[in-house]
Design a protein around this nucleic acid. Structure first.
Length: 417
DNA sequence: TCTGGGGTCCTAGGACCC
DNA sequence: TCTGGGGTCCTAGGACCC
């Protein structure tokens, strides 16, 4: 029995890579080390915002999501690179491979951060020894810095990893909460943004301590179920398990793009929709999933954004079907104003195997008639009623799609750190 | 001369059903 | 002749995160 582990309860680490994209570029080209570096999109395509920047750049006041021109004003010597996602994905895989050497309970939450449940890893050392070893290994093998939080649950571990950057290791125990969590303003909490912080201020809640003692009824009416969850977290309570399979549980797959300039040209807009559909379709195929809801997104020059979606009778995966629905939605809902951004997303995903299984009982018709599946299905729907066909592929009959054969590589394609 | 792109989760109203 | 109380599904929007 290791005295550093609790008799009951868990030990969770949260590993957070420091300014990940910028650090990967520095590892790739060490001459960049020590210099103000930013990863940003191309301003000529109106994508010139800072995605990540090095600590040297941050010392000039450069921040994530800041427009490039503003960053340059603050830091004229800023080195700017466009993202190399393949490098980041590969570094990410290396990082998670290292984490899995310490426990099989590793849950990636984004390309550059994840949780590890080391409750049953006592033979490897104390929690601090394990964290130090992970940090040292990531540094020596990948030349990348990270911060690690050690705590009895995910929320506290995440909070702890934020407390010391870069290359920090921070323990946050239950008994540390009054001194270390409660003084923080609520906006520092994971899950509290500007809007929620403003609402909370309205009922006199400004610090995490205020939140920890806030009135349940008031919180519920102000923020819904999330208000009560936030209060639990402010009290250091969080029962969510570390789930290694959560990355296989896709809810939606989508792509969007800001156009080089606002346009009302219908041909250009439709061909952009087609391109987005091709990308989404390729990703659906790669994940081997289909979806039953198609959604488009249209943003205008005032950045006002609308989404329009429809449930489709038959699961879509290929780009022709997807384009058909996406174009239809666009033509039905576009008001003719100049468009800044377009997006296409497929939701209500199912494993492809499962969806075809549901349809297999009708396959003799498909074979006999040699017609596209959707035509056959619409006929069957007329014959048997809508429910007889659609029930099996939607709603509660659907199984979550994480029962896949385990692929240990990190394959959720996040774009940002 | 501004504000990207990938997601998740929650809410709320209306349709519809029993 | 004026109307309840469940529930689910669909759609749209919003808050938040990295």
């Amino acid at each position: 029995m290791n005295a550093f582990y609790p008799k009951n309860g868990r030990v969770i680490l949260h590993v957070d890579m420091n300014s990940f994209y910028a650090s990967v570029e520095m590892a790739y080209d060490p001459s960049l080390k020590g210099k103000p570096l930013a990863i940003a999109g191309n301003p000529k395509e109106r994508k010139g915002i800072i995605v990540t920047c090095s600590y040297e750049a941050r010392s000039f006041g450069v921040k994530t999501t800041m427009p490039l021109w503003e960053a340059k004003k603050l830091c004229p010597d800023l080195i700017i690179m466009t993202p190399n996602f393949d490098r980041y994905r590969s570094a990410s895989k290396g990082m998670f491979d290292i984490l899995r050497q310490y426990s099989h309970l590793v849950e990636p939450v984004s390309i550059d951060e994840g949780y590890i449940d080391i409750t049953d890893s006592q033979e490897l050392g104390t929690p601090i020894e394990i964290a130090s070893s992970i940090q040292a290994q990531i540094k020596s093998q990948l030349d990348l810095p990270c911060s690690i939080g050690i705590a009895p649950n995910k929320f506290l571990a995440k909070t702890a990893s934020d407390m010391k950057k870069p290359m920090g290791i921070t323990v946050l125990r239950k008994r540390d909460i009054p001194a270390r969590l409660w003084p923080l303003p609520v906006i520092e909490m994971h899950g509290v943004g500007a809007k929620t912080a403003e609402k909370l201020k309205g009922i006199g809640v400004e610090t995490c301590k205020d939140l920890a003692y806030a009135n349940d009824i008031q919180l519920k009416s102000l923020l819904g179920i999330n208000g009560l969850r936030l209060k639990e977290k402010a009290n250091g309570e969080d029962k969510r398990p570390v789930d290694p399979d959560s990355i296989y549980d896709y809810k939606s797959v989508g792509n969007s793009t800001t156009l080089p300039r606002d346009t009302t040209n219908q041909n250009d807009l439709l061909s952009t929709i087609d391109k987005l559909c091709s990308k989404v379709s390729a990703r659906l195929k790669q994940k081997d999933v289909v979806g039953t809801t198609v959604q488009i997104m249209i943003r205008d020059k005032f950045r006002k954004t609308i989404t329009r979606s429809r449930k489709v009778e038959n699961p879509v995966m290929n780009k022709e079907d997807l384009s058909h629905y996406a174009r239809e939605l666009f033509m039905k809902h576009w008001n003719g104003d100049p468009v800044r951004l377009l997006g296409v997303t497929v939701q209500d995903l199912l494993e492809k195997g499962e969806a075809t299984e549901q349809l297999d009982i009708f396959s003799y018709e498909k074979e006999a008639k040699k017609e596209p599946l959707y035509d056959v299905l619409s006929q069957l729907q007329e014959k048997f009623g809508k429910d007889s066909i659609t029930k099996g592929v939607k709603g509660k009959d659907k199984k979550p799609i994480h029962d896949k054969e385990r692929d240990t590589s990190f394959n959720k394609d996040f774009l940002r750190e």
